[in-house]
Amino acid sequence: MSEAEPHVRVEKLVKIYGNRTVLHGVDLTINRAETLVIIGGSGAGKSTLVRHLIALERPTSGNIIIDGTDISSLSEVALARERRRFGMVFQKYALFDSMTCFDNVAFPLREQTKLSERDIREKAMQKLKELSVDHAANLTPAQISGGMAKRVGIARALVMEPELLIYDEPTSGLDPVTSRTVDDLIEEMREKFGVTSAVITHDMVSAFDIADQIAMLIKGRVVAQGTPAEVLDHADPSVQSFIRSSGVDASRFAQRRPRSPSEALAEKAIARKRARVADAK
């Protein structure tokens, strides 16, 4: 097995709004086909950090290097080309309310590909079906529940099969069962298509379930980055207190040794298979 290859590198990222510094020199690496979960309290700068990964914000200083290209200094046109390889699931769904759910999912296909309307229909409906929201295809976002809107938002981000997917609180506002479905989907995207993911979440169960790497952000600084087990064992008292108050069962992870990505994949696949068998019973 070859060494993990960095897909995204954030170097000394500083973001200042007016006289407020939100990010104080963040350094971060996301390896190809791995999932990095970013945790931290509200106002820690998590959303600002991921908005930089997709160039919705420009850094005050520092670099965002994706596949060797520094996207922080690209022109609007060059950036549009790069963005075809990204997808983002927004916290507040960000569905276009002037369109039906189907048209929302078909939108990136219509804008970025030359597929026929028939192929677009097929692909978009398939994604809606995978997320169990195909019955809402002809409804507008205002006519569906928050949980359904979230799934339509995820379908829209996945339909282009991007290389890098960013999820801003994908499970917030969802019931526990749907949350786990979303977790499975994030896993599946990585396993099937080798997608690199960055996930912001407050759902610690989900964080420790899907992460290859966890980064903890406190007041605009990365205080810990490593595998879930490494973060659990981290010496920093602020990390420990955050994890304790989140109620994560540390014993589940404490025994684990550091794994290679392939081992991690195998482990998770086995765990999921067991869970499915248990469900079936």
């Binding site: 919705l56 963005r83 997808g87 983002m88 927004f90 507040k92 309310d97 990136p108 804008e111 970025q112």
Partner: peptide, 14 residues
């Protein structure tokens, strides 16, 4: 406010 403009940008639509 509902991030729809950001969504357009992330889908490479200016």
């Amino acid at each position: 406010a509902s991030e729809q403009i950001d969504a357009l940008e992330t889908m490479a639509v200016n």
